[in-house]
Design a protein around this nucleic acid. Structure first.
Lengths: 256, 256
DNA sequence: TGCCGGTGTGGCATTTTGTGGCAATTTCTG
DNA sequence: CAGAAATTGCCACAAAATGCCACACCGGCA
């Protein structure tokens, strides 16, 4: 029928490049409905103009260091990416997914970029921006007051917005895990909001990278619902592991 | 009427160009019920007038065809920056400011980065992210479904969220301004939302850079309230200026 | 009737895209 | 660490879409 115009294709590629920093040939080919060879030729053309940078499997944008995003992700980036990929494997087509704010859930968002038939709900600005720029995912932002630290919305508006949605899977981060295995958070409000997010989801996954183990943050988190699993990048210390087992929380370890 | 006149055909083509950034010969031929050759001749005519840009398979707008935010930012960046600075000068400390989505309002956000004692309400992801990262401004995000093109929230959730706030100043963008001086927008929903935003603000400023003059977009915008002023970077054409005067809209020209 | 602008049709050159095979690279696995 | 399996890059050729030109057709008009 009507192929998309070559020029709008390259346009789309540049956009995706701006948003994600890198694009893959296979993904673009699928998303744009053309063959991989065509995408390769597009990338070559863009590379000839100096607008893209060819790498194996796709193209990347020169030295685009994303601001604070990359900086925070730098802390245990590999582990978080592994958790993100693992978590993404639980997301089936056609589902509604709730993503909490935080660098670990952002890693999950990166892993969801290739998906198309899912709806993502989030209070995180970077996650919303990433997914709306470079994926076919439907994105709904939960509004509210922005916490500059988390770059995400919190507050009664966020809680109220949450009420309106049916969520299949909720992916929640945590501030820290005490030596006794208790989940903790930075503030009462954040804790309460995560609590509501858990209640909103039919299945709840906690994303915990190992830098959170035995990190103390001030507020105890209330766990109101069943936890489908914790996804971690390294096995937790014994005492924490025992606490998880006592609560019957399955622990899934992502491989790097 | 079976066969649309050549003029109205080219009109349609220009509209499609503005809306999508690029058009394809095949699609237009099918839509308008004429042969591809005829469309090609139309495009050639438009290209001769400098109103379109031929590419293989169709035509594109300007040098790079594309309506995405990243590119719109580049279009007339200086003019938009001037408008942004001028608009920022109306923002006093302690006020609540509503920023519409769009590249011109994003320019205003840049100009507000150094302010501290203001509260910003916006449905635009880039604006929210920018202000929460690099300023002391309190930011509240209006949630809703994200339109990837605008990178901003639209929909009933956004409208509902808007109801909860008292806004001193509202800064609104427009999709285009017809030759008769009518404000237009890309979609009914966007138009309605801007309408509500205007009603929410005690004082309403419209931000219009000159690339909007005589640009056609499909939906008429309802102006429900008093307009404090239009802020422009260049004086509008006579006919548009007269229309503004007839409505008693003060026009403020920002200096570059 | 003959002219004229606009339009459709068909043929052919050109450009773009798809396909299949094979080499090179990466990733997985034991 | 080595070898297998999967992915990707690359090339050449085929297929499809598009551009372009010449010419026929149609309807209005003097």
């Amino acid at each position: 029928m009507n192929r998309p115009l070559a020029i709008s294709r390259q346009d789309h590629i540049l956009n995706a490049l701006d948003a994600a920093g890198a694009v893959s040939v296979s993904l673009l080919a699928e998303r744009l409905g053309v063959s991989r060879e065509t995408i390769r030729r597009d990338l070559k053309a863009l590379a000839d103009q100096g607008r893209a940078n060819l790498v194996h499997g796709g193209a990347a944008r020169g030295t685009t260091a994303e601001p604070s995003l990359a900086a925070r992700q730098a802390a245990n980036a590999r582990g978080k990416a592994a958790i993100g990929r693992k978590a993404a494997s639980f997301v089936e087509d056609g589902t509604v997914v709730l993503l909490d704010s935080g660098s670990t859930t952002l890693a999950l968002a990166y892993a969801l970029v290739e998906r198309k038939d899912i709806t993502v709900l989030t209070n995180s600005l970077p996650i919303a921006l990433l997914l709306c720029r470079s994926s076919g995912v439907k994105v709904t932002m939960l509004g509210g007051e922005i916490d500059p630290n988390d770059e995400a919305a919190f507050g009664i508006d966020t809680l109220a917005a949450l009420e309106h949605f049916r969520v299949d899977l909720a992916f929640i981060g945590v501030g820290g895990i005490s030596a006794e295995g208790e989940l903790t958070d930075y503030s009462r409000l954040a804790s309460e909001q995560r609590h509501r997010m858990m209640k909103a989801g039919k299945k709840v996954f906690l994303l915990v990278d190992h830098s959170k183990f035995e990190r103390r943050t001030p507020v105890k988190m209330a766990i109101g619902s069943q936890i489908a699993a914790l996804i971690v990048d390294k096995p937790p210390p014994k005492r924490i592991a025992q606490a998880f087992a006592a609560r019957r929380w399955p622990v899934i370890q992502a491989k790097a």
